[in-house]
Amino acid sequence: MTFDFTTAEALRTAEASRPAGAAEAAGVAKAPGCGRTNALRIPASVESLEPVSAFVLGLGDRAGLTESSLYRLRLAADELATNIVMHGYRGEPGEITVDGGIDPDEVWVRFQDDAPAFDPRQGMRAPQLDVPLEERPIGGLGVFLAFTAVDTFEYELVAGRNVSTLVMRRPTAD
């Protein structure tokens, strides 16, 4: 059983950020597996980080994630979205499509954007613990946090679009 729904807030944001009728053309991807699907289309700007967080928190909450898993999924999503805004589009106007779904054993959140091809994992750097904080390169930390926060982090270039998917396992129902 699959049914789509969009939160009111997400819908508003999406409506405001794209010309009417472009919805189908953008081709919000189909959800992997079965389960609930949500979609959110937002302009690539820091103001969009809040709706992304709200979206992910809502999804994870419905999936019954533990508080800690929920926090980490949101952290990963926030870092990924920040990365797309700051490094993907580099401050140029653009759009991010976020969708997500709940499968029996996991929750997934997927980001799609049309920024130049950019595998976020390329920029990832584990913190250099031996280097004093004040001398460390700060870049790549966000992706590192995202990567270590979730169970799976996938990136694909699909027909020129960047597609990153975060997956968090759901607690096993006994």
Binding site: Y71, L75, T82, L141, G142
Partner: peptide, 16 residues
């Protein structure tokens, strides 16, 4: 309630 790498950046800045 929440801290992302953007906040950590400012901690590095503070240290520097």
């Amino acid at each position: 309630g929440y801290l992302s790498s953007a906040g950590l950046r400012s901690l590095v800045f503070a240290r520097q």
